[in-house]
Every structure is written in structure tokens, then in C-alpha cells.
């Protein structure tokens, strides 16, 4: 497991890449930009990535993070990859529900179920 500037950790499990956000609060533009750069660096190196974003540590986020997820999602799909989210705290899940992003992202209870949800690669 590699730690990148304590913002994310990256773990590889079978064919899935698991990125966990390590900050408890993700608020400021600088945090969001740093996260975007860190995640996109991983995505750029892996066309057709099966990416799981793990929110287990996150207890608070702003709408800027939702924008970040939309951007990451676009980049992943441009590269013919797939994206899943997991371990979202109930308070934050409510934010996804209010904004109807539950219709946009595949959200799973934990890393295992998220990783198992990917379609088999040809």
C-alpha cells in the first residue's frame, strides 16, 4: 500500500484499484485540487481501471468534493474504466441522496462488494 501526501492511500486487490481518502474533512479548494491530482495520477497510469474510492475515513465534505467525483468519473469513463464508491458515512450518504448523485455513482457498502461488482474483463 502506498501513501501519497497523507491525502490518499492506494491498494491493489485482484483487478481493482482501491483509493482511500485519508482526510476526515475535505473542504478547501486546495484539498480538493490535491486529491484530484493524486487520483488522476493513478487513473492516467491505468487505462480501463476498475477504481474503488473508499470513504471510510471521511466524515465531512463540501459540494466541491462532489464536483471532484464527477470529474474523476468522467476521466475514468474516458479511459474505458469503471468507478465505484464505498464506505460512505450515513451523514455523507444523505448529501449524495439530496443531490441525486446516488443515481450517478455506483455506491457500495464496503470495498469487497464494490470490487466484486465490476464486470469481468474480456
Amino acid at each position: 500500500m502506498a501513501a501519497i501526501q497523507p491525502r490518499i492511500t492506494v491498494e491493489y486487490r485482484n483487478e481493482a484499484t482501491i483509493i482511500a481518502f485519508t482526510d476526515e474533512r475535505i473542504l478547501e479548494d486546495t484539498d480538493v485540487r490535491a486529491l484530484r491530482e493524486a487520483v488522476e495520477a493513478v487513473v492516467e497510469q491505468a487505462p480501463r481501471i476498475h477504481l474503488v474510492l473508499d470513504f471510510r475515513h471521511v466524515r465531512f465534505l463540501s459540494s466541491a468534493v462532489l464536483g471532484l467525483l464527477i470529474r474523476i468519473s468522467k476521466r475514468v469513463y474516458e479511459q474505458e474504466g469503471e468507478l465505484r464508491l464505498c464506505n460512505i458515512h450515513p451523514g455523507i450518504y444523505e448529501v449524495f441522496k439530496i443531490t441525486r448523485l446516488t443515481n450517478v455513482f455506483g455506491i457500495y457498502e464496503d470495498v469487497e462488494s464494490a470490487a466484486q461488482s465490476f464486470s469481468a474483463r474480456q
Binding site: 459540494s63 462532489l66 464536483g67 471532484l68 464527477i70 470529474r71 468522467k74 448529501v95 439530496i98 443531490t99 441525486r100 448523485l101 443515481n103 450517478v104
Partner: peptide
């Protein structure tokens, strides 16, 4: 921001929240 293409825009959710 919950409607149509707006759902896929990275901004515009602050006031809704």
C-alpha cells in the same frame, strides 16, 4: 443541479444543500 445534464456538472450544488 438534480435535473438532466446538470446532474453531471461539477458545480452548482451549494444552494441546493
Amino acid at each position: 443541479p438534480r435535473v438532466g445534464e446538470n446532474l453531471y456538472r461539477p458545480e452548482g450544488r451549494g444552494l441546493l444543500l
